Amino acid sequence: MGFKLLSKLLVYLTASIMAIASPLAFSVDSSGEYPTVSEIPVGEVRLYQIADGVWSHIATQSFDGAVYPSNGLIVRDGDELLLIDTAWGAKNTAALLAEIEKQIGLPVTRAVSTHFHDDRVGGVDVLRAAGVATYASPSTRRLAEVEGNEIPTHSLEGLSSSGDAVRFGPVELFYPGAAHSTDNLIVYVPSASVLYGGCAIYELSRTSAGNVADADLAEWPTSIERIQQHYPEAQFVIPGHGLPGGLDLLKHTTNVVKAHTNRSVVE
Rank of each mutant, 00 (worst) to 15 (best):
S191W: 13
L73S: 00
L143N: 08
R141Y: 04
H117S: 00
L9R: 15
L156R: 03
S113P: 06
K4A: 04
R128D: 10
E157G: 13
A25V: 12
F174G: 01
G148P: 04
Y48E: 15
V37W: 14
L81T: 06
L173E: 02
S161A: 13
T114A: 03
A136T: 06
E80D: 08
I17C: 13
V45M: 03
G240A: 05
N92V: 00
E147W: 15
P176A: 09
I50Y: 05
S27Y: 10
A200H: 02
S62N: 06
Y175H: 07
D77R: 03
A87K: 00
L156I: 10
K91W: 13
Q228R: 11
E44D: 09
S70T: 05
I227G: 03
D52N: 10
S139E: 12
A218N: 12
V189P: 00
F3S: 08
A259H: 08
A87T: 03
L217S: 05
Q235L: 12
R128I: 10
A98G: 13
H57R: 03
N262H: 10
T36V: 13
H117C: 00
A209P: 12
V11K: 06
V194D: 01
N149W: 05
T153W: 12
N262Q: 12
N211C: 05
L5A: 12
D183K: 01
H252Y: 06
G53Y: 07
K91F: 07
T93C: 00
L81C: 03
S205C: 03
L13R: 12
P239I: 03
L173W: 02
Y196D: 03
G32E: 09
S181N: 01
L204E: 15
E99Q: 14
A90T: 11
E233A: 12
P176Y: 01
S223I: 00
C199N: 02
D85C: 00
A21K: 15
P244Q: 06
G240F: 05
S139N: 09
I50F: 07
N149A: 15
I186H: 06
G89E: 00
V166D: 06
P221M: 09
H154P: 05
I201C: 04
V212P: 09
L96D: 00
P138I: 07
A136M: 04
A136C: 06
K8C: 14
V42E: 14
R128C: 07
V67D: 15
L24N: 15
V212I: 10
T86K: 02
L97D: 00
S31W: 10
G163Y: 07
G169A: 06
H180D: 02
R76W: 06
R141T: 06
S38E: 10
